[in-house]
Amino acid sequence: MTELGVILIGALLVNNFVLAQFLGLCPFMGITKSYDTAFATGLATTFVLALAAVISHLIYHGILVPLELTYLNIILFIVVIAGLVQLIQVYLHATSPVLHQLLGIYLPLITSNCAVLGVTLLAINQDLTLLQTLTFAIGAAAGFTLVMVLFGALREQLQQASIPKAFDGTPIALVSAGLMSLAFMGFQGIGS
């Protein structure tokens, strides 16, 4: 149980995927202009990430390893993620129009979110068990959502600030992300 806790906190705060491992920066920079979209993207990503990591784990250990086809992992995982995103979109459209309307436009973007493939590959590389993979994925996704929401709120404030012309837009966003990352470095050492 302690071990799972360490994995969860590690992926959530200590090795935060966005601020310490540089995964998922495209949505982090692209769609955090407001708090609401950041939250919706975070939720959609959490859902896909947890499912993709578990399914990829099952396929890898159930099919690729016995057949000695592990070199196909990248191709197969990206197909799993793309298929999963498509499935969720169809399912949400049919069952929950409200949720579909809320998350709809952010879903297709998840396929090209490198955090999803990154978490899946990292879980395989570190030889995690199924339960550990699930914990790792939930921690990573929660960390992603947390940082997206914090950064979305921060950027809403940035729009009111007077910023030097050269730094306006992306540069100031990157510098703010740097300061956030500095704060997150304070978590280093927890659980080790």
């Binding site: 601020l19 310490a20 491992q21 540089f22 030097p164 050269a166 730094f167 992306t170 540069p171 100031i172 966003a173 990157l174 510098v175 992300a177 740097g178 300061l179 990352s181 500095l182 470095m185």
Partner: peptide, 14 residues
């Protein structure tokens, strides 16, 4: 470290 990457990339882009 990661903060340095963000800060220097921001300065480069600026």
């Amino acid at each position: 470290y990661p903060p340095g990457a963000f800060l220097l990339a921001g300065i480069l882009f600026a």
